[in-house]
Design a protein around this nucleic acid. Structure first.
Length: 209
DNA sequence: GTATCGATTAGC
DNA sequence: CTAATCGATACA
């Protein structure tokens, strides 16, 4: 007898993440990201993500080798790499590829699907479009901090659903990554074109020199 | 040891 | 446009 279907699906297996981060970044667009916490469950569709490619990528935290901060990226795929930046924000990445190849996908924006009131409480704003728009706001809406670095995405309580990705009538587009000063020309950002929850790039950061 | 800079955000 | 705010990094 088959188990009853779960409303939000089941966690994707580790093999989903065991591919190049470019492939995974494209594949996660439209997928459901679920976070189960004592306060409740929140979920959102990934509408924007970026690939970071370790030793080949000057913009990656792992470009200069392993440090205490980026250690999770050097481990098994299918884990959460959460880091702290600008003295106040956390960002969520999905570790991809394989152990020793520090690749990851930065989750840049979600379309809220469940637990919207909890997201509003965590964020202190009401509008659906801005609840999880921007990587710092994604982590905030999901209630993620450094203590969640290393969570196993294949087991929960933070996981990607195996349900068929829904693109909500939008096309998947790609373009340059946002907020970096090096390797900014590489088109490793994927997003649902025209989706209201996708970030609007403000400006190109000036390169040093 | 000191100086600088973020895979950002909100506000003016 | 800038302040916020601190860990990681660069350099003396």
């Amino acid at each position: 007898m088959t188990p009853a279907p779960r409303a939000l699906g089941r966690p994707l297996a580790r093999r989903f993440y065991a591919r190049d981060s470019l492939t995974v970044a494209r594949a996660v667009i439209g997928r459901l990201l679920v976070r189960d916490a004592p306060e409740g469950r929140v979920a959102g569709r990934i509408v924007e993500a970026e690939a970071y490619r370790g030793a080949r990528d000057p913009a990656s935290h792992a470009y200069r080798g392993r440090t205490p901060r980026n250690a999770t990226m050097f481990g098994e795929p299918g884990h959460a790499y959460v880091y702290f930046t600008y003295g106040m924000h956390h960002c969520l990445n999905l570790v991809t590829a394989h152990a020793g190849t520090p690749s990851a996908v930065l989750v840049r924006a979600l379309e809220p699907v469940a637990g919207i009131e909890l997201m509003r409480a965590r964020r202190g704003v009401e509008a659906i479009e801005v609840l999880a728009r921007g990587p710092g706001n994604v982590a905030r809406a999901l209630g993620l901090t450094l203590e969640h670095d290393g969570l196993d995405l294949a087991r929960g309580p933070l996981w990607l659903s195996d349900l068929v990705p829904r693109r909500a009538g939008h096309r998947v587009a790609r373009g340059p990554r946002i907020g970096i000063r090096v390797a900014a020309e590489r088109p490793w950002r994927f997003f649902l074109e025209g989706h209201p929850c996708v970030t609007a790039p403000r400006r190109i950061l000036a390169r040093p020199g």
